[in-house]
């Protein structure tokens, strides 16, 4: 030790050299923990501990005025599921549909940006994230203006004499049950449209990162071996893009399931999603155990989904 203090500054660069490793290793041993401590403590106290308190709250009985006691009342779960399974199921269906839609729309866009946009690549990437710059509540409200009965879409199709396209589109939506009358707004379609819109960049960016590295020559090789474009996509492009697809679908599906902004602003009482129920139970009905139980069920569903999905897709690296 004395040698070290005597040696002082000139010896300090030494750690880079092997053999002298003893001193820095011992001295550095606690440094990473010190660096980790505040941030990780924050996540433990304000992310992990709340999960426990959520689980505990869901098993308590009592009311707001007289306080709660932990009674392990699992009946709250069966009651909550029995009452709110339609909203839960609807959330999964809407989020799933929106995820498929973001994939169907995001894939061509990501391919276009990655391989066909030339020198406009960076410009287009900025435009993909540009919507984030405006509050997403304001942007979601803008869909009311676009989809409304005499909204911009209706006005545009009337102006360009393409109303027949719009009414054809509406009858398709009607046939699959996404709208119940002639109205686009305040329907399941509007909610899914909003969800798709809001989470599209989350799909496009990981897909782009993946497709950009995809060697174009592999696609050409497939063509040389007489693969049709469809075969080339199915046998070459799709398998290679799977990591991007997995990342994009997770980034879309998870937040979309819990979202209720789109269903409140663009939907009706017939499109209530589970987030809306949790919000109302916590903040208006003040039935904390039911709200906590629903929240915990949603969390378990998401965890189960992520684990099975990632296992089936075969990609272990998530971040």
């Amino acid at each position: 030790m004395a040698v070290n203090t005597l040696a002082g500054a000139p010896l300090a660069p030494q750690p880079a050299q092997p053999g002298e490793g003893k001193r820095p290793r011992r001295r550095g041993a606690y440094v990473p923990y010190l660096l980790l401590l505040p941030g990780m403590l924050w996540l433990v106290v304000f992310f992990l501990v709340p999960m426990l308190s959520l689980a505990s709250q869901s098993l308590q009985t009592g009311d707001v005025d007289n306080g709660y006691t932990l009674t392990f009342n699992f009946a709250t779960y069966s009651d909550a599921l029995g009452t709110y399974w339609p909203q839960l199921l609807r959330s999964l269906i809407y989020a799933g549909t929106a995820t498929v839609a973001t994939l169907a729309l995001g894939f061509p866009l990501a391919w276009f940006i990655a391989h066909r946009s030339g020198r406009y690549k960076n410009f287009l990437l900025v435009l993909v994230i540009a919507p984030f710059f405006t509050s997403f509540l304001i942007r979601t409200l803008a869909w009311q203006t676009i989809l409304g009965d005499s909204g911009l879409l209706a006005q545009f199709t009337a102006f360009t004499h393409t109303d027949f396209l719009l009414s054809g589109f509406k009858s398709v939506l009607h046939a699959v049950g996404l709208i119940s009358n002639d109205q686009l707004l305040f329907s399941p379609f509007a909610v899914i449209c909003g969800l798709t819109y809001n989470f599209l960049p989350f799909m496009v960016l990981p897909l782009y990162a993946n497709l950009e590295r995809l060697d174009q020559r592999l696609v050409e090789a497939a063509g040389d071996l007489y693969a049709s474009p469809v075969q080339a996509f199915r046998r070459v492009i799709w398998p290679l893009s799977l990591p991007g697809v997995v990342a994009g679908t997770l980034l879309t599906f998870i937040p979309a399931t819990g979202d209720y902004i789109n269903s409140v602003l663009l939907g009706s009482t017939q499109t209530t999603m589970i987030g809306q129920v949790i919000d109302a139970q916590f903040l208006r009905v003040l039935d904390y155990p039911t709200a906590a139980a629903l929240s915990f069920i949603l969390l378990l569903l998401i965890v189960a989904f992520v684990v099975t999905y990632v296992r089936r897709a075969g990609t272990e690296e998530l971040v």
Binding site: M40, L43, F47, V49, G258, D259, F282, S295, F296
Partner: peptide, 27 residues
């Protein structure tokens, strides 16, 4: 474990994070 703890908040729906934190503050 550290990496998992960092990843989890990004993979949790906002409504779950918001409500669980509220139960902590209530408790």
């Amino acid at each position: 474990g550290t990496n998992l703890l960092i990843f989890l908040p990004m993979a949790t729906p906002e409504v779950v994070m918001g409500s669980s934190l509220l139960t902590l503050f209530i408790a």
